[in-house]
């Protein structure tokens, strides 16, 4: 929020000190700034305002100030909120562990020259161009308890006892959705890592080899440091995308069964658009905003420091 608050004074000072440069920049900046301010920045700020109000989403009904009531209800009388917040955090942690390491391994493997390399890369990448809502439909079908491929395969190989109603059991549904997200998300991170690997200085790797460094040592001492900027980008994108998860859950369980796969992004939406309590939705969104900013601001600071060098 501090970023937002300091904007106006900064800009006025600019105008006073360097009128010509800033005047030149205005026509280039203005179209993007208007769109961005009106349809992104303002809605986000308004979400915070909405969290102190009550509104049912109808044009003619007024918004009423209710102070901290929405937050009180959220923190004390809404068990789904806590479930959703925990799930969002679990999703972030799991995404940082499983798909990220998987995509790094794939990138390292597919950085070697080999037969069919481009085909392999394509196969791992293509799920990423499918809409998440589509992926949700595909995996709902795979998870179908009666006709789905997963249960049928388990049955066929004699593991029928492992059959589950994958999306119907509260303990499993959330993780079943996560598996679909791994399938969809690994390819994109792999491409980012592959791009980063192009920047690893080859002569350094060769030099380390001549010096007798093992593959493991070469990886930690030469490759990983060169990959650091890419890794930071991947980590941040992974965190943001994890907090954003919405389509997959809407398409596979809509947060159920019994809200067991609920996440903050979807809970905020459900409160606003299904329950018509836009204030509650705003409060949930504000919690999500604070979570995102806590993770983003350090990154912004880091990337700008790199810019000065």
């Amino acid at each position: 929020m501090s970023v937002v608050a300091t904007a106006p004074p900064g800009q006025t000072r600019t105008r006073r000190r360097q009128p010509r440069r800033f005047a030149q920049a205005i026509p280039y900046l203005l179209p993007a700034a208007i769109l961005y301010g009106w349809f992104l920045l303002y809605p986000i700020i308004d979400s915070v305002r909405l969290s102190f109000q009550e509104w049912n989403g109808f044009r003619n009904s007024p918004r009423q100030w209710v102070g901290l009531d929405n937050y009180k209800r959220l923190f004390t009388a809404d068990p789904v909120f806590w479930k959703a917040a925990t799930n969002s955090l679990i999703w972030v942690v799991l995404s940082l562990a499983v798909p990220m390491i998987l995509s790094l391994l794939l990138a390292l493997a597919l950085n070697r020259k080999m037969r069919g390399r481009n085909l392999f890369r394509s196969i791992f990448y293509i799920p990423a161009v499918f809409a998440s809502i589509t992926v949700a439909a595909m995996w709902s079908w795979i998870y179908n308890p009666n006709f789905g491929a997963l249960n049928q395969t388990l049955e066929a190989i004699g593991l029928g006892s492992l059959k589950h109603s994958w999306l119907g059991e509260p303990k499993i549904a959330f993780y079943a959705i996560f598996v679909a997200s791994i399938w969809q998300g690994v390819g994109f991170n792999m491409v980012l890592f592959l791009a980063g690997l192009q920047q690893v200085p080859n002569d350094l790797v060769e030099a380390a080899k001549i010096d007798g460094a093992s593959a493991w040592q070469r990886f930690w001492v030469v490759v990983m440091p060169a990959l650091r900027p890419t890794t930071v980008v991947v980590i941040i994108l992974t965190i943001i995308n994890s907090l954003k998860v919405f389509d997959l859950i809407v398409g596979m369980t809509a947060g159920g069964p019994a809200q067991s796969s609920q996440v903050l992004a979807l809970w905020s939406y459900t409160q606003s658009f299904s329950n018509h309590t836009f204030g509650q939705g705003g409060a949930t969104a504000t919690v999500l905003l604070i979570m995102s900013l806590c993770l983003v601001v350090p990154y912004l600071a880091w990337s700008m420091k790199g810019d000065e060098k």
């Binding site: 961005y36 809605p43 308004d46 705003g282 969104a285 983003v296 912004l300 700008m304």
Partner: peptide, 24 residues
């Protein structure tokens, strides 16, 4: 400052603004 203001928008889940966007 302009860069930071713009870039911050890339880092925030869109669902945060959905309610007000609807109202706008």
């Amino acid at each position: 400052l302009a860069l930071g203001l713009f870039a911050a928008g890339a880092m925030v889940p869109i669902q945060i603004g959905l309610g007000p966007l609807f109202s706008t």
